[in-house]
Each structure stands twice: as C-alpha cells, then as structure tokens.
Simulated assay, not measured.
Amino acid sequence: MKNLKHAGYDYLLEESLEALHRESQIWSSELKLWEIELAFFQKLLDRNSQNFTSNEEKKKMGHFQNLVSYYTGEVLDRFDQKIKQHEKYLAGELANKEQLDESVYRKKHAEIASHIGAFRIEFIMYKREFFNFIERVM
C-alpha cells in the first residue's frame, strides 16, 4: 500500500473511491469556471483590441486570443471528456463490485490529476500575463 501525502501529512491508507469521485467533481467545476474566465478574457480582448496599436501589442493580443481558442476548444474539451470517461468507468466498476479493479481507476485518476494540476499552474501564469497586458489599456 502506498503512502499518500496531503497537506503535508503522511497517511497510511489510500483515499477512498468516494474521495476520488469528489475530486473528479471538483475538476468538472474548475473546467466550467475556466471556460467562463476564458470567455471573459476574450470579451476583454475584443473590447480593447483597438487600443493596441503597435506590432508588438498586436502580436501579444493574437497570442492571448490563440491561447483562449486552444484552451477552450482543445484543452478543456479534452479534460471534460477524460473526466466523464473516468467517472463512467468508476460507475461501471462500482455496479460490478465482484470484479472491481481499483488499481486501474486509481492509476487513471492520478494521471488526470497530474495533467489538471499542470494545467492549473499554466492557467495561473496565463492569467497573470494576460492581466498585466490588458491592464495597460484599462
């Protein structure tokens, strides 16, 4: 059995499937919030596009618009599909408790958690850079 670390403490037991399910629900909520934020960022870019006149500013604006499209159209959609498949797999496994293979679910869960954690950090950096950029014209 693996030791899990949470908030700086060591635990001898793995998290329950219910806890992992709740974490998946949190990811889904985060995706919805990120979609709302990205739509808002696109509106800010649209409303302030005429205020960026230099070639450098226009390139930077294009960069932010490309990232909004990429995050919305690819990254978040991919995460949403993975989370739904992941939860569907769990539901199927729980319905068939005699053949429950938690290790497959836990491995996939850890993989998704790693990808979402990395994106969470990337998105924080994106927002910081975006706000510094858009703040110049507001």
Rank of each mutant, 00 (worst) to 15 (best):
M125K: 14
S103H: 12
G73P: 08
L20T: 04
A110H: 13
F123T: 04
A39Q: 13
H115E: 15
S49C: 07
L100F: 15
N96V: 07
L33Q: 08
R136T: 11
N51I: 01
E98W: 02
S49M: 04
G92I: 08
R22G: 01
R78C: 09
T72I: 07
L31Y: 03
I112R: 07
S28M: 12
V104F: 05
Y9K: 14
L67A: 03
F131Y: 13
K58G: 02
Q81N: 11
R136E: 07
T53C: 01
M138T: 08
Q81W: 05
I112M: 11
I26E: 06
S54D: 04
M125E: 15
L38G: 00
F64E: 03
H109Y: 14
H21A: 07
N48Q: 10
L45E: 02
I112W: 04
L33Y: 01
A113W: 02
E18Y: 03
L12G: 03
K84E: 13
K58D: 01
L76K: 04
E18R: 05
L38I: 09
Q65L: 12
K107R: 15
K59I: 11
L90E: 06
D80Q: 14
L45V: 06
T72P: 04
R106E: 14
S16P: 05
K84N: 11
E37G: 01
R22S: 11
R120G: 08
K59L: 14
I121N: 12
L33F: 03
E122G: 04
H63D: 12
N132I: 02
E111G: 03
V68K: 08
K60M: 11
E74G: 00
D101K: 14
Y105G: 08
L38Q: 02
H86A: 05
L31I: 15
L44C: 07
Y89G: 02
D10E: 10
V68N: 14
M61N: 10
Q25C: 07
W34M: 02
E37V: 06
H115T: 13
V137W: 00
K97V: 06
K2P: 14
I121Q: 14
K59N: 14
H86L: 06
L31S: 02
I116Q: 07
E23N: 09
K58H: 01
L13H: 03
Y70T: 12
D101C: 07
S103N: 15
F52I: 10
Y70A: 11
S28L: 12
S103D: 14
A7I: 10
N132K: 09
Y89V: 04
V75P: 00
E129F: 01
V104N: 13
I116M: 13
D101H: 11
S103P: 06
W34R: 02
I112H: 04
K43N: 09
L100A: 07
A7Y: 09
S69C: 05
